[in-house]
Amino acid sequence: PKDEAKKKVKEAIKRGDEETAKRIAKKYNLDWDDAKREADEER
């Protein structure tokens, strides 16, 4: 599900692992900028 994928993307971003985050986002066709902004807001 997309929500689960987005959570994984945000967790990867918070760990500083943007490569993984981008790969997950691409795989699930998520909006990378959107997920990154959300992760930054939660930090």
Rank of each mutant, 00 (worst) to 15 (best):
P1M: 14
P1T: 15
P1L: 14
P1Y: 14
K2A: 12
D3L: 11
E4K: 11
E4I: 13
E4Y: 13
E4C: 14
E4Q: 11
A5C: 09
A5Q: 06
A5D: 03
K6P: 03
K7C: 14
K7V: 09
K7L: 10
K7H: 10
K7I: 12
K8S: 08
V9I: 14
V9H: 02
V9D: 01
K10Y: 13
K10I: 15
K10V: 14
E11L: 06
A12H: 07
A12E: 02
I13R: 01
K14V: 08
K14M: 15
K14S: 09
R15Q: 08
R15S: 08
R15T: 04
G16N: 04
G16L: 02
G16I: 01
D17T: 00
D17N: 04
D17Y: 05
D17Q: 04
E18G: 03
E18F: 15
E19D: 11
E19M: 07
E19P: 05
E19H: 07
T20S: 08
T20G: 09
T20F: 11
T20W: 10
T20H: 09
A21E: 00
A21L: 00
A21N: 00
K22T: 02
K22I: 09
K22V: 04
R23H: 10
R23W: 11
R23C: 11
R23S: 12
R23I: 12
I24V: 04
I24A: 02
A25W: 00
A25Y: 01
A25M: 02
A25Q: 01
K26M: 13
K26G: 07
K26Q: 14
K26H: 12
K27A: 13
K27E: 15
K27S: 07
K27M: 14
K27I: 13
K27N: 07
Y28P: 02
Y28F: 12
Y28S: 03
Y28H: 09
Y28I: 02
N29P: 02
L30I: 15
L30M: 05
D31K: 04
D31P: 07
D31Y: 03
D31T: 04
W32G: 01
W32C: 02
W32E: 01
W32M: 05
W32Y: 15
D33P: 05
D33A: 11
D34N: 10
D34Q: 13
D34F: 08
D34Y: 05
D34E: 15
A35F: 15
A35P: 02
A35N: 04
A35D: 03
K36Y: 10
R37F: 07
E38C: 00
E38A: 07
E38H: 04
E38Q: 08
E38F: 06
A39F: 12
A39M: 08
A39T: 07
A39H: 07
A39L: 11
A39Q: 05
D40H: 09
E41S: 12
E41F: 11
E41A: 13
E42D: 10
E42Q: 07
R43L: 15
R43F: 13
R43A: 13
R43M: 15
R43S: 14
